[in-house]
């Protein structure tokens, strides 16, 4: 088709297009299929987290005489973590905008900032874990603490993997430039990073805020 002809209607239309909805148009291009497949992975990751959330909600009061949620959690630390991760997600979006326009300096700059804000988040989380263990609240203390460290630690592990992925993406963009397949990988990374922020919203609400209500 030439560029002058309008794009066919979407869905099961027989009008202007030859698309019968039976796949006669052929498979979608890679730039659609690859991020869609990754989107399915991200959603299945959210299902995994829902199981951890359900476990946590079941065990949150099973503290075996040990420290409780309101004794352990500090809201000011969590507020800083939340802001850092939110800004990181935002800056990652800005990096996507500049990457689409093949602007090397701005893309690398935004990606560095994304990584630094992610590191801020991760350091605060590790500090929190270390001080909890020092206070006599390690994972083996009670069922509540096991569930807490599994849920929040699993999110932290995702962030760690995301930071490693971010580093390799910056190296790939630097070495190979803004090729189509590199941009696809970068898009998948941004989907992953935004999804982790969505999961953090659930964590700071359910674990930290509701856990410290008076």
């Amino acid at each position: 088709m030439t560029a002058g002809i309008e794009a066919p209607m979407v869905g099961l239309t027989h009008g202007a297009s030859e698309d019968t909805g039976l796949g006669q148009r052929g498979p979608e291009s890679k730039s659609i299929v690859v991020p869609y497949g990754f989107w399915l992975f991200v959603l299945s990751d959210m299902v995994l987290f829902s199981a951890l959330f359900a476990t946590y909600a079941t065990l949150v009061h099973a503290n075996d005489g040990g420290p409780t949620t309101s004794q352990l959690f500090h809201r000011d630390l969590v507020a800083v973590e939340t802001i850092a991760l939110l800004l990181s997600s935002f800056v990652c979006g800005l990096a996507m905008i500049t990457a689409k326009r093949a602007n090397m300096i701005w893309t690398q700059g935004w990606l560095v900032l994304t990584g630094l804000l992610g590191l801020v988040f991760l350091s605060i989380e590790l500090y929190e874990f270390a001080s909890m263990v020092a206070e006599g609240a390690p994972p083996q203390r009670s069922a509540f603490l096991s569930a807490f460290f599994t849920l929040v630690g699993c999110h932290g592990l995702h962030i760690t993997c995301g930071l490693l992925w971010l580093g390799t993406m910056m190296a790939q963009i630097w070495a190979k430039g803004f090729q189509q397949h590199i941009l696809r990988r970068l898009l998948c990374f941004s989907v992953f990073w935004h999804a982790l922020d969505i999961i953090w919203v659930a964590i700071f609400t359910i674990v930290y805020l509701i856990g410290t209500l008076s």
């Binding site: 148009r25 991020p35 979006g93 905008i97 898009l187």
Partner: peptide, 30 residues
């Protein structure tokens, strides 16, 4: 059908599409 046409039928999740200004505004509003 060329790849260009099929790309107008679907968008990938996470992919901003439009002008640079409106994409940035979308992130800032968010």
């Amino acid at each position: 059908m060329s790849e260009n046409d099929s790309e107008r039928l679907n968008v990938a999740p996470g992919e901003p599409h439009d002008s640079m200004m409106s994409e940035t505004v979308s992130y800032v509003v968010g």
